[in-house]
Design a protein around this nucleic acid. Sequence first.
DNA 1: TTCATAATTTAGCTGAGACTAATTTATTAA
DNA 2: TTAATAAATTAGTCTCAGCTAAATTATGAA
Lengths: 234, 234
Amino acid sequence: MLSQSVENFLKAIYDLQKGDQWVATSALAERLKQKPASATNMVQRLARTEGQLVEYVPYQGVRLTDTGTKVALEIIRHHRLIELYLTQALGLPWDRVHDEAEKLEHVISEELEDRMAAALTDTRFDPHGSPIPTKDGHIKKNDAILLADVPVEASVRIVEVHDHDARLLRYLGDLGLYPGAAFTVIGREPFSHALQIQFGDRRLHLGEDALAHIWVTITISAVPVAGTPAQELP
Amino acid sequence: MLSQSVENFLKAIYDLQKGDQWVATSALAERLKQKPASATNMVQRLARTEGQLVEYVPYQGVRLTDTGTKVALEIIRHHRLIELYLTQALGLPWDRVHDEAEKLEHVISEELEDRMAAALTDTRFDPHGSPIPTKDGHIKKNDAILLADVPVEASVRIVEVHDHDARLLRYLGDLGLYPGAAFTVIGREPFSHALQIQFGDRRLHLGEDALAHIWVTITISAVPVAGTPAQELP
DNA sequence: TTCATAATTTAGCTGAGACTAATTTATTAA
DNA sequence: TTAATAAATTAGTCTCAGCTAAATTATGAA
């Protein structure tokens, strides 16, 4: 049985790891609100004792092995399934389920996991739009882009809202801005980069913090997306 | 915030404490599957640091203060409410909910507690018939007697089945012997003290382990109950 | 290419919560 | 009333999981 602390490290490494890149111990420490030395310490213990979960190279970083990824995905499945269950079955608001799931994810049995899944009609996404890994450890990558990177005049649909900041979630939820919501970007402020959007019949401003946590897909793009060649309209 | 270990100690003291009697540290140790020295150690820490939860007198024992009792009842409320929720809402069998609740009781928020309670129609008893303390720390004492102490020929109704032994629960559940079930004691074996009972149209034997974990009320008593004077029948 | 600075690791400390072995206190039988 | 035994506590050890301070390694600007 892995300790809650070890499980949290695996989860954090998974979150921070892009592809098969190395994750810096300092990045881990920051994510987990610990000191760098503590992260190094734990990562070394992980690499040494707990069988084949991570690879660690001093001064370079740490990354999950296939086994480690499997374990991380199990915990993430717990987390997201719990979030979904709490909103769907018990009516908890989407800004409170994260903290609750953060504790429950480490203690529920496989059987409880299965029962919760069975009680839900659709277990593909959690309330923030994050994909829920399947029981056998598969997760669908979502191809959304950060709202901060969306060009002006594009119309978008919210795919995912990162769930760490409850205040932001409450704010967005009150406005109706959760996954599925669609709006058009009508302007960007020169320095703050804040967006003006047209959402139904309302005009809203979204500050930097929001832009960095909302992932969208572009539904109508008036201007070429960065990286793709411009397209002539007839 | 109290640690899970501390919470478990408070719960164990509550369980073992009759009235305002002292609980032996060795009894605590046994209940918690620890060594006596560990229990002494923890009890001393409890008495010293965590504000006014227990009274401790060396070589005599430990007991809960009013504050300590309040805290213990909160945890027990969590435990039993979770057990009830898991059976009612998620269909977990009554022999598996104890272990699950043992872990969940320490981590659910007040809000989740309230939502679970609201989702249930009747929160008076858990699936084993144990009373669920109210949110303000009241619990109804139940006046049941141990099946082991029931005289032959009495008819009884099961009030409560202690939930520690999952094997026993599964066995009893398969027979239909859960709280509410009624039967008549038709005989007792001389040495083993095992009971023969008439349950509907079935005759069953209940061994010592069962007798020590089932609590009943007597519905019809053919023979005077121990302690009450014999009564002449016309 | 070198050296200052930033990032990382090492060394050593701490508290929680368990343990064993040794000691002390209570209890009970003679 | 005392001595043997049982119960409980003390002393000292261990691991986990965090910390600070000191030392080491990488990095990048001159």
